[in-house]
């Protein structure tokens, strides 16, 4: 396990890793509730950054600050040096794409159509152009389709291009969401719990996909709960607890940080069994197991 970690953390990085997405001192308040307290985070080109934290820690709120859904009460988020516009669609135009925690595909459109919609910001054919159907329009449509099929091929859904997206199995729907987000030619891809509800094979496949995306030159920020996934995937991990960034660093660092462990697993309470008692219980269980397996053999 450790070996895989070190392998990934020493993966070849581009010589100059430019900062793409930078959140500085972001504070998000809703009335009296402060959901995000003074969080800094940067995502550089060629990086895969993970964001973890227990539920209710403010991850999604912070995420929404990165996508223009919320405007931070204080602090700012910049992309390539420019402050994010306050409208989600403008943020996407600027170069940040996202997926959703609960799959939000356009269920009654086909797979290809979903990706074509994702391509919306990179095409500009308007109503007049569509009505006139000049050569410019045809060319743009053909290009969009080609690019869409390329992306579908990249994620492995090319064969199902004409299927209604609601008829895809769950794992493929997730892939489609990612494909749709990629169609916007983003510089940074934000993934919101991409492996929720997946089995180990699907999770591994998703991991491969994210690596492939990174290799295409797109930076990735991932929110996840699956620790194994995060730690084997990311170059850097930040942990948010109760709106604050507790720690940030390589997976090894974060994984062994006591505060992170206690945030997820809780601190031992007074009167909890100490280590001797724990060992006793384990021994007793082992003995019982031995006894039953003897019985079965008979």
């Amino acid at each position: 396990m450790t070996t895989t970690l070190t392998e990934n953390s020493t993966a070849p990085e581009p010589a100059a890793s430019t900062t793409l997405l930078e959140a500085k001192g972001v504070i998000m308040r809703f009335g009296g509730l402060t959901a995000v307290r003074n969080v800094d985070l940067t995502v550089g080109s060629g990086e895969i950054v993970g964001l973890i934290g227990p539920n209710g820690a403010g991850k999604t709120t912070f995420f929404n600050c990165l996508t223009g859904l919320y405007v931070p009460t204080e602090g700012q988020v910049t992309y390539k040096g420019t402050v994010l516009p306050p409208k989600p669609y403008k943020v996407t135009q600027a170069g940040i794409s996202r997926t959703f925690q609960n799959i939000r595909l356009f269920s009654n459109m086909t797979v290809l159509e979903n990706v074509l919609v994702g391509r919306h910001t990179r095409t500009k054919e308007g109503l007049i152009s569509a009505l006139l159907r000049g050569p410019g329009y045809r060319r743009a449509e053909a290009e969009a389709r080609t690019r869409a099929m390329e992306i579908l091929d990249f994620v492995g859904l090319a064969a199902k291009a004409d299927r209604l997206s609601r008829n895809l199995p769950y794992g493929e729907q997730r892939k489609l969401e990612i494909a749709r987000a990629l169609a916007g030619d983003p510089g940074v891809l934000l993934l919101d719990e991409p492996t929720a509800g997946m089995n180990p094979q699907e999770t591994r496949a998703t991991q491969e996909l994210v690596f492939a995306i990174r290799d295409q030159g797109i930076a990735v920020l991932v929110i996840e709960h699956d620790m194994r996934f995060i730690f084997s995937l990311c170059d850097r991990v930040a942990c948010l607890v109760q709106g604050e960034k507790l720690v940030e660093g390589t997976p090894a660092v974060v994984q062994s940080d006591e505060r992170v462990i206690s945030a997820y697993l809780g601190t031992p309470y007074d009167g909890a069994p100490g280590s001797e008692e724990v060992a006793e219980v384990q021994a007793a269980e082992a003995a019982a197991d031995g006894a039953t397996s003897e019985e079965e053999d008979r």
Binding site: K87, Q93, L105, F106, N108, E113, V117, H120, G184
Partner: peptide, 15 residues
């Protein structure tokens, strides 16, 4: 159609 199906997702697609 995207707006009709899911406006939030459509916005996230840059529409």
């Amino acid at each position: 159609i995207a707006i009709r199906e899911d406006e939030t997702a459509a916005l996230a697609m840059g529409i």
